[in-house]
Design a protein around this nucleic acid. Structure first.
Lengths: 189, 189
DNA sequence: TTGTCGCTAGTACGATCGTTCTAGGAATGG
DNA sequence: CCATTCCTAGAACGATCGTACTAGCGACAA
């Protein structure tokens, strides 16, 4: 009577594959058919699992933010107490500036930019893109909330700004030098 | 014999109007027809002046970068010698964080993100998006080239990172507080 | 076994896309 | 005036878009 049960794992597989596709082929002009071809399924299959294209995009960027944050937040949490923020920032930067992460962060900033121009559609992304890291970086500090917030804001902004520079210019020497200087000032607190 | 002369001003008018349109309606899925409707011309007119859509996009982002840089570089140049960099950075930040500039910088970051995923098409944008400011900020300093480059890189990255935060969260108090702290450290050099 | 429902695919529809073709007024140099 | 060239518009092309509809297959509960 109840019929065949829903296979949630199947949707997760397709979503991960879709994120990989977006990482390689860009996010701006994603459409059902090319994604379906790359994944070896029909467009109908994607529609069935994601509903509308808009919903698939939301799912993709949700998964993307999840990936990006999970991979770095692990490094944030496992730090000794003293100078925890500086160590966390260094760990995040080391991982983020790894060339192997380039494609994923290019996609991240592409989504970020698009979200800024469609705040309605990407509301959750915009809400959490800063807040998730803020929470983690504030927890890593022992100072009062005001200065902790101020420092966390600066750390997030500087790392992202440097990453934008690195991805745009590929000038590793210059950007790494600036990053090292910033991280050094962070440890002098 | 020579016929009617080319009207370059007409193209500039259309380009400025197209940038305005992109500022309001987004950059990701721009197409001839909606732009033409908004500008009160036919799509053929746009094709005539810009060639292909790709060329129009390049023209738009070139003009956009020109606008964004010109408006702020003026503030950079007209500073007294002492603490020129700090004053320049403060001027740039004051203008960039003005809510009235929000739409333009949203477009700027949307283009930036798209360019990161299509480096071939937007090569010139990526080349100049950092280099233009770098040159101006290095010239504003009297220290050796190495530290001047390092500082300029950090100033650009931090300002852009803070701007990303401000545009995403709208949390003016927190971001302005962090910006003030950063600019203060800049003046202590 | 049988009825139910998830999963997949194929097809088709209307809309919109970028671009080309055709052609008529406007403005300029000879 | 005339020839030439720019500017603009309208129509049409094939391609691709998102999505709905139909239907067959497979897995599960009763």
């Amino acid at each position: 009577m109840t019929g065949r049960p829903v296979n949630h794992q199947r949707r997760a597989e397709l979503l991960d594959a879709a994120v990989d596709y977006a990482t390689e082929h860009g996010f701006a002009d994603l459409s059902w058919r090319p994604v379906a071809r790359a994944l070896g399924v029909s467009t109908t299959t994607l529609v069935h699992h994601f509903g509308t294209k808009e919903q698939m995009l939301e799912a993709i960027l949700g998964r993307l933010r999840e990936r990006a944050f999970a991979a770095t937040s692990a490094a944030v949490g496992d730090q000794p107490d003293l100078a925890a923020l500086a160590a966390a920032a260094r760990a995040v930067w080391t991982r983020a500036s790894d060339p192997r992460q380039g494609a994923e962060f290019r996609l991240f900033f592409a989504v970020y930019g698009q979200a800024l121009q469609s705040p309605g559609q990407f509301a959750e992304f915009l809400d959490r893109v800063v807040a998730d890291w803020m929470r983690a970086l504030i927890d890593a500090q022992k100072t009062d909330r005001t200065t902790a917030t101020r420092t966390a804001t600066l750390v997030i902004a500087t790392i992202r700004g440097l990453l934008l520079d690195l991805l745009a210019t590929g000038d590793d020497d210059r950007v790494q030098d600036a990053a090292a200087a910033f991280l050094a000032t962070l440890e002098e607190r």
